[in-house]
């Protein structure tokens, strides 16, 4: 309250004509300062997390990585300077002298996203339709089961690409997160992150015009 009401005492003193007014300007000033301070220091948007799952490491030398169809395989290599290099199918290390060319693209919407969406059109449309139906109320499903229903759609998928993500040593962490994010956006069902092979390093180096590293790492 701004005004303090002073009671008269016994009528001996003269009744004051004006009750004393409190000047609130300094208080308002102080509050303004505090509000500004809190608004600037508070972190309004909490950081988000992106969950990823890695496959088991193959410890047993007799164990072999699962075989996948070459026709569905798409290799994406994160290159230096925010570039992406990709090639379809597989390359045999025996073809060392005749390595196929890699295609260059970038992280823009018309780059890698276009490429992935083109190849994953069927599944992406299925997921998008499903979401649309949930939003418009045609399918009555609880919020929690939507996620698992989409996951089910993804695991059932057997036409979309299998994207192998690899990273050249000059890539950075931002690229890695971006490409995983791109997989989420495009609804790619299978996108294992695998080690880069030495011949793929060569392919990237040839495409990017980097002098080949003399000590080819064997992993």
């Amino acid at each position: 309250m701004a005004e303090v009401i002073v009671e008269e005492k016994g009528g001996k003193k003269k009744a004051k004509k004006h009750p004393p007014r409190l000047d609130m300007t300094p208080m308002v000033d102080l509050m303004c300062l505090l509000i500004t301070f809190f608004m600037l220091t508070t972190a309004l948007s909490k950081p988000k997390v992106m969950d990823i799952t890695l496959p088991d490491k193959l410890t047993d030398p007799n164990q072999k990585a699962p075989l996948i169809a070459a026709s569905r395989t798409l290799n994406i290599i994160l290159g230096p300077e925010n570039k992406i290099y990709w090639y379809p199918g597989t390359v045999k290390p025996e073809d060392y002298n005749n390595l196929p060319p890699v295609f260059e693209t970038d992280f823009s919407a018309t780059g890698i996203r276009q490429l992935l969406l083109d190849r994953n059109r069927a599944l992406f449309r299925k997921i998008a339709d499903f979401k649309q139906q949930v939003i418009s109320g045609k399918i009555n499903i609880s919020q929690d089961s939507t996620e698992s229903a989409i996951r089910k759609l993804k695991t059932d998928d057997d036409t979309g690409p299998i994207v192998l993500i690899k990273a050249y040593k000059k890539a950075n962490y931002g690229n890695f997160v971006d490409i995983l994010d791109e997989m989420n956006i495009c609804g790619i069902a299978r996108c294992p992150f695998v080690d880069i092979a030495w011949y793929e390093e060569r392919m990237v180096e040839a495409a990017a015009g980097i002098a080949a590293t003399t000590t080819a790492s064997s992993n």
Binding site: K46, P47, K48, V49, M50, D51, Y173, G174, V177, D178, L180, D181, N184, I185
Partner: peptide, 11 residues
């Protein structure tokens, strides 16, 4: 930190 479309909050 880089950006993503994920909406899960940090634990």
């Amino acid at each position: 930190t880089p950006f993503s479309i994920s909406e899960t909050p940090t634990p």
